[in-house]
Design a protein around this nucleic acid. Structure first.
Length: 588
DNA sequence: GCCGTTTTCGGCCCGACTGTTTTCAGTCG
C-alpha cells in the first residue's frame, strides 16, 4: 500500500468514529487525522519505516497506531480498523474524496436515501440532486444542492485532482498575481506564503498575504483578478479564487500592525502551527493570525507587525520557513540551537555542467561552450566548476575511440585552466552505471579524469535490492566520487527507482562518497527528507544544477532550497567550501 | 490516541466561511 492509500484508510477510520459518536471519540478522530497528515507528508514509505522500526518518528504516530500500521504492512489489513469501519455504510467513503463532502454529509445522504453501492454512489447522489430530492432534506437547501452538483461535476472532470505544481510554475502564478495586486494603492505589502514560502518542491495552492487598511477593497480587487475563473469564497479577511487549470489562489488580509502574525499563520506548515500553538498554550499564550492573547492579561490581544518579534514573544528564535515542518525545530528554537542554514551566497561552484564539447555522448549534450559556461560561473561569483558531460556512447565507439575523445577534452580543459586563472576547472564526467554495476567506460579512459560523477540512466525497473547493489558497485570505483540525481525521479512524471537508503548512507559514510542534490526543478533529488537523513548520517552533499545551457546555471537556488529544507548548513555542502577544503573532499 | 521546559495523567490549535439557521453545523486550512 502506498502512503496515500494508508493515509486515506486512517481518514476513513476517523470518519467512522465521527459517525459512531463524535463527542466520545473526538480525540481519537483528531489523532487518526494527525497520523494521516504525517503519513501523507512523509517522504519515506510507511512500509520502509515499518521494516526499519522507525514508525514512531512520524509525529502523531504513537504505540497504538504504530502497531496497527505494522499489522497493515504485514497482513494488508487491520482487525481493529475493520471493526470500526464495519459500523458505517461503506458507500459513504467515495463521497469523502469530493471537496465539501465530509463524513456527516456523506453519511446523511447514504443513510437517508439508502445508497448501498460504493461504485455508483457518486452518480446516485448526482441523480438525486438533479431531481431536487436533496434540497428537501433537513439541513439542506437549494443552494447546497446546487453546490453539490458543482463539486461533483468538477470532481468528475478531475479539476481538484490536478497534480501539484513544481515550484517555479507556482512562483510564476504568484508573481503575476502580485504584480496585479501591487497596482492597487490599498495594498501596502504583499507576500507569497504557504508552501511557496517554505520552498516545498511541489505546491498545491498558491497562498498570498496582503497588509492593508482597507481589507474590503483589497478583497474586492482580488476577486476581480482577470485570470479568475470562479470565486470559491469571499469573507471579511480571506478569499479564494479558481484560475484556469484548476489552481486555487487563497488571499488573506490584515492591517499592517498585525502583518507579522499573519505571515506566521499563513506560512504554516499546518503541523508546525499546531505544535507552535500547543507550545504557546503551555505558557498561557493563545496564538492566531491576529496576534497573541495572554491569559495573565485577560486575553488581551497583542499585535505584531513583524514575524521575528512574534517568535521572540514566545521565547523562540525566528525559525526559517523552510524548516517549519514540526521536525523538532520549535524545541531547538527554544534552546537557541537552530542550525545556521546554508545560503545561496555560500555556493562557490557547480560540478554538473554539460557543455557543447563534441563528446558524442550516450545522452543529451549541452548547447553552450565551455568558455561561455566559465564566464557565467564568473558572473555568479564562483571560484571553481567541473564539466561533466555524459560519457561518449559505448555502442557507437570502441574503447580506443572513447579514450581519444576524452583525451582531446582533457587537453581542452588543461588549456582553459592555463588561460583562465579566476575560475578553476575540474575535469569530471557523468558516467552511466550499467545494469551490472560496471561503469560505462574503461579504466584507461577514467584515468584521464580528475574524478567522475556516476548515475543511472537506463533499466530503472530493478528491484530495490538489485538497484542498491548496482549503485554501490558503480560508486565503488575509486574514480567515482558523486552519485548524481540519486533517485532518478522526475516530479509529476515518474517516481524514480527504489534504493535501500540505510545501505547507501552507510556505504557513502565509510567510503567518503558524495551525494548530489540536483537543482533542476523537475528533479530536486535527493529530496528534502533524504537530505536530512543523509546529514544525520554525517554524509557530505553537493548541489549541482545539471545545466545543459548556460541560463540553467541560475537554477542553483532551487537546490539550495532543498538543502535548507533538509537542514543543511554550509559545513555539509561540498561546493560551499573554499577551494582547498573542497578539493580534499572531492579528490581524497 | 498522542504526548511531556508546569504533566506518564490529563490535557488536547484557532479561526474563516457558507448555508441553513435565528445561534449553529459542517468543512476547510
Amino acid at each position: 500500500m502506498t502512503n496515500a492509500e494508508i493515509a486515506k484508510l486512517l481518514r476513513h477510520v476517523a470518519a467512522a468514529y465521527i459517525i459512531k459518536d463524535e463527542s466520545k471519540y473526538h480525540f481519537q478522530v483528531v489523532a487518526y487525522q494527525k497520523a494521516a497528515d504525517a503519513i501523507e507528508n512523509s517522504t519515506s514509505e510507511v512500509k520502509d519505516l515499518a521494516h526499519e522500526n522507525r514508525l514512531e518518528s512520524l509525529p502523531g504516530v504513537g504505540p497504538s497506531i504504530r502497531g496497527y500500521l505494522e499489522e497493515l504492512v504485514k497482513n494488508n489489513s487491520v482487525e481493529h480498523f475493520n471493526k470500526v469501519l464495519s459500523n458505517v455504510p461503506e458507500a459513504m467513503f467515495p463521497l469523502l474524496d469530493i471537496p465539501s463532502f465530509g463524513p456527516k454529509k456523506a453519511f446523511k445522504l447514504v443513510n437517508y436515501f439508502e445508497l448501498g453501492d460504493k461504485k455508483t454512489v457518486i452518480e446516485d447522489v448526482k441523480k438525486l440532486a438533479l431531481k431536487g430530492e436533496i434540497a428537501k432534506l433537513d439541513g439542506f437547501g437549494d443552494k447546497s444542492q446546487a453546490d453539490m452538483l458543482q463539486a461533483i461535476g468538477e470532481f468528475e472532470l478531475g479539476v481538484n485532482k490536478t497534480s501539484r505544481m513544481v515550484l517555479p510554475f507556482a512562483s510564476e502564478i504568484a508573481d503575476k498575481l502580485i504584480e496585479y495586486l501591487e497596482k492597487s494603492s490599498d495594498v501596502k505589502k504583499v507576500f507569497p506564503l504557504g508552501s511557496l514560502r517554505r520552498k516545498k518542491e511541489t505546491i498545491g495552492d498558491v497562498d498570498v498575504a496582503v497588509a492593508t487598511n482597507k481589507p474590503k477593497e483589497v478583497l474586492d480587487y482580488f476577486v476581480s483578478y482577470p485570470l479568475k475563473e470562479r470565486i470559491l469564497e469571499k469573507g471579511d479577511a480571506t478569499a479564494s479564487i479558481l484560475i484556469s487549470g484548476g489552481k486555487h489562489i487563497d488571499l488573506m488580509v490584515q492591517p499592517p500592525e498585525a502583518f507579522g502574525s499573519l505571515l506566521q499563520h499563513f506560512t504554516g506548515s499546518k503541523e508546525h502551527n499546531i505544535k507552535l500553538r500547543e507550545y504557546a498554550l503551555k505558557k498561557g499564550l493563545s496564538l492566531s493570525e491576529y496576534g497573541i492573547k495572554r491569559k495573565e492579561k485577560d486575553d488581551k490581544l497583542e499585535q505584531y507587525d513583524d514575524e521575528v518579534k512574534f517568535y521572540h514573544a514566545l521565547g523562540l528564535d525566528w525559525i526559517p520557513p523552510e524548516i517549519r515542518e514540526n521536525q523538532g525545530e520549535i524545541e531547538l528554537a527554544a534552546s537557541h540551537k537552530l542550525p545556521k542554514l546554508l545560503e545561496l551566497k555560500d555556493i562557490k561552484g557547480d560540478f554538473h555542467l554539460h557543455s557543447s564539447f563534441p563528446i558524442e555522448p550516450s545522452h543529451d549534450m549541452g548547447v553552450d561552450t565551455m568558455e561561455t559556461m566559465i564566464e557565467k560561473a564568473h558572473s555568479l561569483g564562483y571560484d571553481y566548476l567541473g564539466f561533466s558531460e555524459h560519457n561518449p556512447s559505448q555502442s557507437k565507439h570502441t574503447a580506443k575511440q572513447v579514450y581519444e575523445i576524452l583525451k582531446k577534452r582533457s587537453n581542452k580543459i588543461e588549456q582553459l585552466n592555463k588561460s583562465n586563472k579566476s575560475i578553476r576547472v575540474i575535469s569530471l564526467l557523468e558516467t552511466d552505471i550499467m545494469p551490472n554495476g560496471d561503469l560505462a567506460i574503461d579504466n584507461s579512459s577514467l584515468d584521464l579524469l580528475d574524478a567522475t560523477l556516476v548515475s543511472i540512466h537506463s533499466v530503472f525497473s530493478m528491484s530495490k535490492v538489485e538497484m542498491t547493489k548496482r549503485v554501490i558497485k558503480g560508486l565503488s570505483h575509486p574514480k567515482a566520487r558523486i552519485l548524481t540525481h540519486p533517485t532518478g525521479r522526475l516530479l509529476n512524471q515518474r517516481p524514480g527507482y527504489e534504493l535501500d537508503w540505510r545501505e547507501i548512507f552507510a556505504f557513502c559514510k565509510s567510503e567518503k562518497k558524495i551525494l548530489e542534490i540536483n537543482a533542476f526543478p523537475s528533479r530536486l533529488d535527493l529530496s528534502d527528507s533524504l537530505v536530512k537523513q543523509a546529514i544525520d548520517h554525517g554524509i557530505k552533499l553537493v548541489i549541482n544544477t545539471d545545466s545543459h545551457a548556460v541560463d540553467q546555471m541560475s537554477l542553483m537556488r532551487y537546490g539550495v532550497d532543498v538543502a535548507r529544507r533538509g537542514w543543511a548548513t554550509r559545513d555539509d555542502i561540498l561546493n560551499a567550501q573554499e577551494y582547498n577544503t573542497m578539493i580534499k573532499w572531492l579528490l581524497p
